[in-house]
C-alpha cells in the first residue's frame, strides 16, 4: 500500500512561509483538493511533495521511506506529477510523448513493447485525443497539450498522483472528463491523488479531502464536509462567498 506522509513539514519560498509544521497522510482511495489563493505556494508545496525540492525541515515519507533517500527512478514508479505548464519544443508525435510515461519502467536498452504501446493508446483515448496519435506535439493547442501531458501521467501509472491545476486551459466538458479520470484512478484502482484547484466547485464535486493554504504558513486539512463551507472559503480567499444548494450538493459562488 503506497502512502505519502508529511511529518512536521516546513516549506517556504524566498523567505515566504507556505506551510508550517504540516502533518498529512495521503492514503489509497483518497482524493485531495489543494486550495488557496493565487501565489500562496500550492505549486511549491506540490514540488516538495514530489521530492523536487527539499523542505526547510521535516520529512516526506514515500512508502515509509524518506524521499531524499529514494533514487529518482524508484520514486517515478510510485509517484507522478502533472506540472502546471506544458510546453513541447521538439517535434515528437502524440504517441511518442504519451509513451514517455513508460520511461521509469524500462531499462536503458529496452524498447517499448506492444504492451506499453497499448497503455499509451488507452491513455490517449481516455483524454479524447484518439485520432491524434501521429500528430506533432508542437502543433497542439494549449488544451490538447494539457490533456496529452495528463495522458503521459496515466501511462506512468503512479500510485500517487500530484496534479497542479489539471483543468487549466480546458473547456467545461474536458474539465469534467479529466476529473472523472482522476476519480477512476482513485476509486477503481485505489490510487491517491492531490490536486491543486482554483475551482472550488470541482473540489466539492470530486474531492474526499481538502488541504487549505492560508498564507503565512497557516494550513487546515481534513474531510471535505468539514472544510468546504461558506465560512472557510470566505476566510481562505478573503472575499464574500455565497453557497447554493443544487441537486448534486452544495456549490459556491462569489458573493457581493
Amino acid at each position: 500500500m503506497t502512502t505519502l506522509v508529511c511529518q512536521s513539514l516546513d516549506v517556504s519560498i524566498a523567505g515566504k512561509k507556505i506551510a508550517d509544521g504540516l502533518d498529512l497522510e495521503l492514503t489509497p482511495g483518497q482524493f485531495w483538493g489543494l486550495l488557496g489563493p493565487n501565489g500562496i505556494g500550492k505549486t511549491t508545496l506540490l514540488k516538495c511533495l514530489a521530492g523536487l525540492s527539499t523542505p526547510d525541515s521535516g520529512t516526506v515519507l514515500l512508502e515509509d521511506q524518506s524521499m531524499v533517500e529514494i533514487p529518482r527512478r524508484a520514486i517515478a514508479r510510485l509517484l507522478g506529477m502533472l506540472q502546471q505548464h506544458t510546453v513541447y519544443v521538439f517535434d515528437a508525435s502524440v504517441l511518442e510523448t504519451a509513451l514517455t510515461g513508460r520511461h521509469p519502467h524500462l531499462g536503458h536498452w529496452k524498447r517499448e513493447g506492444a504492451h506499453d504501446k497499448q497503455k499509451a493508446l488507452d491513455a490517449i483515448r481516455a483524454v479524447d485525443l484518439d485520432g491524434f496519435e501521429n500528430r506533432c506535439v508542437t502543433g497542439l493547442s494549449g488544451g490538447e497539450a494539457r490533456r496529452l501531458a495528463f495522458a503521459s501521467l496515466l501511462v506512468q501509472e503512479p500510485a500517487i498522483l500530484l496534479l497542479d491545476e489539471p483543468t487549466n486551459h480546458l473547456d467545461m466538458r474536458h474539465q469534467v472528463r479529466i476529473m472523472d479520470r482522476v476519480e477512476e484512478q482513485v476509486k477503481n484502482l485505489q490510487r491517491c491523488a492531490i490536486t491543486a484547484l482554483h475551482d472550488v466547485n470541482l473540489a466539492a464535486r470530486y474531492c474526499s479531502h481538502i488541504l487549505m493554504l492560508f498564507g503565512d504558513g497557516k494550513w487546515r486539512a481534513g474531510h471535505v464536509d468539514d472544510l468546504l463551507n461558506r465560512k472557510m472559503l470566505q476566510q481562505l480567499y478573503s472575499c464574500p462567498v455565497e453557497s447554493v444548494q443544487t441537486s448534486a450538493g452544495k456549490r459556491f459562488l462569489p458573493g457581493n
Binding site: L52, R72, V89
Partner: peptide, 15 residues
Amino acid sequence: NVLAMGETTARLLGE
C-alpha cells in the same frame, strides 16, 4: 528524449 521535455519533467520521469 525525456530531458528534451525539460529538466523537471525528466526528474519526474525518474532521471
